[in-house]
Design a protein around this nucleic acid. Structure first.
Lengths: 127, 127
DNA sequence: CCGTATCCCTCCCGATACTG
DNA sequence: CAGTATCGGGAGGGATACGG
């Protein structure tokens, strides 16, 4: 059976957008890239990123856990210890994210430049 | 020479984040994927996406033009015609975006599932 | 046809302070 | 150490109507 949008309108739940809804926020990819080095504790991530508040870090991590990209492991010790680590799924995200990063490293200069000069890319063409 | 964050804190202007700041919003990647088929007019994009208001479409396109990812070509005709097309830079974005999309197509089911069941991924470990 | 102009509202994120 | 509680600002985005 055909899906509901029939090719008329673009899929509003386009796969690309689904990922971006998950990792497109301000801190998620940073966390993923940090956790790629290995399991980290809450405060380790906190200082590694620098500038993120505990509240936001918590909620971001919770989302990652809910999406099955990260695991949260609590050690019954004193002082308390909690470790976050990428799941298999989370690690598999590294590839596409790295692709994005590579593109950025090559082209950040270009897109920053055109913003700064806000060069008028509009062209006029007579009929 | 070393950069200013010295490896202590993670780069707040991490390349990956710079890209996401550009294409991580609600409609940009959809537009890019549509324009990959070839140049399109304003209303063509509008109906192809479906659900986007003219105001938002305009501002999104303006951002894409400002970033040098899309060109805007005005034809002095009646009725007026405006065509948007990917630049070379814009087309080069297709690769990383497609990588993201491929990952999504394989794993969307997985991440949706863990959200729905909100399975508790937290583990307990005695000392 | 290709947009602007307003209004409004939600959600993301930050600051700050406090707790098991 | 690893969070929670509360407050608040501001950008992104939608609804609707109008203009060149």
């Amino acid at each position: 059976m055909s899906s509901s949008w029939e090719g008329d309108a673009f899929d509003p739940e386009c796969p690309t957008r689904v990922v971006l809804d998950r990792v497109g926020d301000k801190w998620t990819v940073l966390i993923i890239e940090i956790l790629d080095e290995g399991p980290k504790r809450f405060s380790e991530i906190r200082v590694a990123i620098g500038g993120i508040t505990p509240k936001v870090l918590t909620s971001t991590l919770r989302s990652l856990v809910a999406d099955g990209l990260v695991t949260r492991e609590v050690f019954a010790e004193v002082p308390p210890r909690v470790e976050y680590a990428l799941t298999e799924l989370g690690r598999s995200l590294q590839e596409p994210v790295a692709a994005l990063r590579r593109w950025a490293e090559l082209n950040v200069a270009a897109i920053s430049e055109s913003r700064d000069h806000h060069e008028d890319a509009t062209m006029l063409r007579g009929s």
